[in-house]
Design a protein around this nucleic acid. Sequence first.
DNA 1: AGCACGCCGACT
DNA 2: GTCGGCGTGCTC
Length: 728
Amino acid sequence: MSFVRVALDVPLRTLFDYRAADAVSDDVGRRALIPFGRKIVVGVIMELANTTDLPLTRIRSVLRIMRDVPPLPADVLSLLRFCSDYYHHPLGEVVMAALPTRLRRRHALKLPAVRRYRLTEHGLGIDPMALPGRATVQREILGRLRVSALGVDEQILRGLAPGIAPALKSMSAMGWIEAVVEAPDSSRAIPGLIPGPVLSAEQQQAVDSIRRESDRYLPWLLHGITGSGKTEIYLALIASLLARDRQILLLVPEINLTPQLEALLRARFPDTRLVALHSGLSERERLNNWLLAQNGTAGIVLGTRLAVFTPLPRLGMIIVDEEHDASFKQMEGLRYSARDIALVRAKTRKVPVILGSATPSLEIYHLAHGDRCRMATLTQRVNAVLPAIVCVATRGEKLIDGLSQTMLKALHENVGRKELSLVFINRRGYAPVLYCAACAWTASCQRCTAKLVLHLNDTRLRCHHCGFQEKIPAACPRCGNADLAPLGQGTQRVETALTRIFPDARILRIDRDSTRRKNAWNQMRDRIRDRDVDILVGTQMLSKGHDFPQLTLVGVINADSSLYSSDFRASERLFGGLTQVAGRAGRADLAGKVLIQTEFPAHPLYQSLCRHDYRGFAQTLLKEREQAALPPFAYLALLRAEAPKLETALAFLKRAADRGHSLAKHVTLYDPVPAIMPRLAGQERAQLMVQSRSRSALQVFLAAWLGILENHADRRVRWSLDVDPLDL
DNA sequence: AGCACGCCGACT
DNA sequence: GTCGGCGTGCTC
């Protein structure tokens, strides 16, 4: 009798046994259609078995093993198992979350025809420039096909512009181009390569040392200051791997960053099939790209954290760009760190993994000082020097909408020189607080422990945590005073102030609100590139990986707010964030200057920042972390609980702690406390921290502890475990 | 999670 | 007399 053990998308820590007479070992990793309760669902076969622990009467039969796409390979299955064990999350949910949504459903798949187009003899003789001016799409296609003698995948062409499909049809009809239909795996050929800039000695050295060790598992921290050309290193490494017929997995923090990098990769490697994998794709694109990665056709997979689970038969290297970025950690459900999982995956596949950053996480920086991780360092900017960073003391200063005289003067001069300036505030909206001067009332969210943020362009108060919004009251709801005042600065307020102070300057605000409209961000980037802007006002969005070549002045206001936060990672993040914004200044041939307004110019963080001294600052923080037994010198887990009443959540955690104490060996359980934001979207939240100097002791404890917690579930409380939490 | 079963309050 | 509230238990 043969059985299969199936992973299902249910929050249960078990696999489910089914009868499957026709199952063979090649079916492990395949999807199966099965009856579950009174529904029919899709699961993934994790194991074959000859026996089962259940009475045979309870075993049902698999309806169909779905052999339409190849099975998940062994290394992905073991990675998913690892994830489930390490993050203590039900295996079924982990496995199903790693599949593209289309594959989680039972409907038959329409599999994409892999078709590429190439120029015919006739087409080769057509001069794109000789086409009528309005034939932009045809010109684009011809231009693209001219670069690649091998032809270009239809999917890639379709991505070039809207209206590609009909153009392909008519161009085929005219005999300019022809379609080549081929079996999925036959498209490999020696990839063409457009040479990039000549590498600096330092860059070349980094590339050489990584290349020397590229046949085994080895993590590399690529620590390169902003503007030092880390991307060129990735490209050089990618080129050598493609030449050896290997696939590269390139992970980036956010979708925002992919279009630029994607364009660069496509330009440099015109014959290599590159696929993107992120949540911004349609289900269909996601499935197609995933399949191209899985069957080995895609040479480069560029994706966000979810791409770390993609099957890659010829994987040769994993690159994690902006390794320190918090977006690599998923904050709900399976709370995994794609950066950490990338390390595990590289290890099982015996390939190198490159972790790039100008401001590495202390975890990785510390790791790179041991013998299990190498470090390659870039200390010089390509064709530029680092900007001068200067603190502007604001204590006792009179500020105009948050801006000091020094800042305004610098902006004035920079605008006069026709150079680009950036004012950075990490807060969108007009003002973070609406305040009644008569009775000290402030507008706060009914559902969260948070103040409502004043948005003046649509005259509403908004909660940035739960999305609640309402009209701005005409008078104080508590005392009737009609004189309500906005307190503090947001991007809109600074934009308004600058417009007033510099009436002739072209000012552009960039934050989540101003870029919400589709394509808005692209248009804004074009405006900046075309030098149609004098002053940019923006949030974090601006600091992540964007190059603004003419930017020479960066002003930072309200940086102090996170200086004395209760989160032990706050200063690491502040230093990193400020280094990243500062790094936007002074590229190409123009010197840059950075002004940071602060009440505490003598603070060691700012002192290190002004000296561009990441190393010194990191060493100070590491010493503190070691003394306090915090990561990377200890390992943490957080049991989070939420309930309608805080007392319920706290009581649950208290009971959990009581049950845990007897199990705790080399593990410390702290007292349950309310979360940083005790109420969020109407739910009250608390958390319990578990700490250990030993990762394995922590793991052993968590496994035993969760077993107990599951048997004492309180249905009023929703709880979850966060291993290696980033936010406390 | 989802969905059944099951036992107590206000309605056609 | 029933419709439906959500407590409890189960899914191979």
